[in-house]
Simulated assay, not measured.
Amino acid sequence: MSGQLLRYLGIRLLLIIPTTWILVTVVFFLMRVVGDPITAALGGRLPPDQIAARKHAAGLDRPILSQYWDYISGLARGDFGRSQDNRAITDVIATYGAATLELVVWALIVAFAVGIPLGRYAATRRDTAPDVGLRLFAILAYAAPVFFVGLLLKLVFAVKLGWLPVAGRASTSVELDLQNVSPKTNILVVDALLYGDMGYLEDVLKHAVLPAIALGLLTAGVFLRLVRINLIQTLRSDFVDAARARGLSARVVTRRHAFRNALIPVVTVMGMYIASMLGGAVLTERTFEWKGLGYQLTEYLQARDFIAVQGIVAFIALVVAVMSFFVDVIVALIDPRVRF
């Protein structure tokens, strides 16, 4: 690995720190604008003296800069705070984060499986009826609210046709049995494999289909348009003309020479759209009662548990920053021009 590449990656790695710091700082002060979380969560349900005692125990009656320092110091130690029921947010992340990770992975598979081949197909048939239809599909897939798409999928494939389950990560009996798997990962596909029952694996996969499609189509439309536009531009390049001049067929030129270069912008924006997927996961999990981190976040919002909300959002910000770094690594390996 060249020194220039190492220097580029080192700078990108260091940028994780200020990026995450800015995000968690904004979240902290926005939460304080709403008011102190103890009063927001328990006001009207406890007498004022008990609320004051809880605020004092949590350090919320101290100056805001002191609270901010404690918050940042805790994050540096891996402490994301505690919820109103005195549960560590790290435990919440460990329990529910695996479900969100599983959903995002399935959605990415859908996005790549749909967006990239269709984008390539549209580029090779530019301005024909299939191309116009696919461009319209891409716009609709990106513009349609993920919860609306989810509700339509449930209505058609679960309620009307009865092919797939309506909601949940697995059937109740399956989830109960998978609680006893050791070692337990909270990723139900993995747990079902560890359990060794193919019927359980089939049940888990069926429950994942509709949420993955609803969330995956959000990004598939973007990938389709990016691949189409960049592949069309790449097919006009000099090196592609040179490949054609050597007598290579259009299929070989597209597959071996143009397609790889057209994928570079897709990889570049992947980190950004993983962030949008995490946002979409909140609505998707709520729509399909997929009990992941997004579902739990909405539960804390409804309970006005702003400390828990703050901790989960801070964790998501850290994940987005780290994912952006890994995308930079992949892009630097694919395209050396980004190092300059």
Score class of each variant (00 low, 15 high):
Ser2His: 12
Leu5Gln: 11
Leu6Arg: 15
Arg7Thr: 13
Gly10His: 01
Ile11His: 09
Arg12Asp: 01
Arg12Cys: 01
Leu14Asn: 06
Leu14Gly: 07
Leu15Pro: 05
Ile16Phe: 05
Trp21Arg: 03
Ile22Tyr: 03
Val24Asn: 09
Val24Ile: 14
Val24Cys: 13
Val26Asn: 04
Phe29Asn: 09
Leu30Thr: 02
Arg32Ala: 05
Val34Arg: 14
Leu42Asp: 03
Gly44Val: 13
Asp49Val: 13
Asp49Ile: 11
Ala52Leu: 13
Arg54Lys: 15
Lys55Phe: 05
Asp61Arg: 02
Asp61Val: 04
Ile64Gly: 02
Leu65Trp: 14
Ser66Glu: 15
Ser66Asn: 11
Gln67Gly: 12
Tyr68Ser: 08
Tyr68Thr: 09
Gly74Pro: 05
Phe80His: 05
Arg82Ala: 13
Ser83Tyr: 01
Gln84His: 04
Asn86Gly: 03
Ile89Pro: 03
Thr95Pro: 02
Ala99Asn: 00
Thr100Glu: 00
Thr100Val: 08
Leu101Pro: 07
Ala107Trp: 04
Val110Gln: 03
Val110Glu: 03
Phe112Tyr: 12
Ala113Gln: 02
Gly115Thr: 02
Pro117Gly: 07
Gly119Pro: 09
Arg120Thr: 15
Arg120Pro: 04
Ala122Val: 01
Thr128Ser: 11
Asp131Met: 00
Asp131Ala: 00
Val132Met: 13
Leu134Pro: 03
Phe137Asp: 02
Phe137Tyr: 04
Ala144Arg: 03
Pro145Lys: 06
Val146Tyr: 00
Phe147Tyr: 10
Phe148Pro: 08
Leu151Ile: 15
Phe157Pro: 07
Ala158Cys: 09
Leu164His: 01
Leu164Phe: 13
Pro165Asp: 06
Val166Met: 14
Ala167His: 11
Ser171Leu: 14
Ser173Phe: 14
Leu176Glu: 15
Asp177Ser: 14
Val181Leu: 00
Ser182Ala: 15
Thr185Pro: 06
Leu193Lys: 03
Tyr200Ala: 07
Leu201Glu: 01
Asp203Trp: 04
Val209Met: 04
Ile213Ser: 10
Ile213Glu: 07
Ala214Arg: 10
Thr219Glu: 09
Ala220Met: 01
Phe223His: 11
Arg225Gln: 09
Leu226Pro: 08
Asn230Val: 04
Leu231Cys: 08
Thr234Tyr: 05
Ser237Pro: 07
Asp238Ile: 12
Phe239Thr: 06
Ala243Tyr: 05
Arg246Ser: 12
Gly247Met: 06
Arg251Gly: 14
Val253Ser: 10
Ala258Glu: 13
Phe259Ser: 10
Ala262Lys: 06
Pro265Asn: 11
Met277Leu: 15
Met277Ser: 05
Thr284His: 11
Glu285Gly: 09
Arg286Tyr: 13
Glu289Arg: 12
Trp290Asn: 05
Trp290Cys: 02
Gly292Ile: 01
Gly294Met: 03
Tyr295Ser: 12
Gln296Ala: 12
Glu299Ile: 14
Tyr300Gln: 07
Gln302Thr: 14
Ala303Cys: 10
Arg304Ala: 15
Asp305Arg: 07
Gln310Arg: 08
Ile312Ser: 00
Ala314Lys: 10
Phe315Pro: 10
Leu318Asn: 02
Leu318Met: 14
Leu318Phe: 14
Met323Glu: 09
Phe326Met: 03
Phe326Cys: 06
Asp328Thr: 00
Asp328Glu: 02
Asp328Gly: 01
Ala332Tyr: 08
Phe340Ile: 13
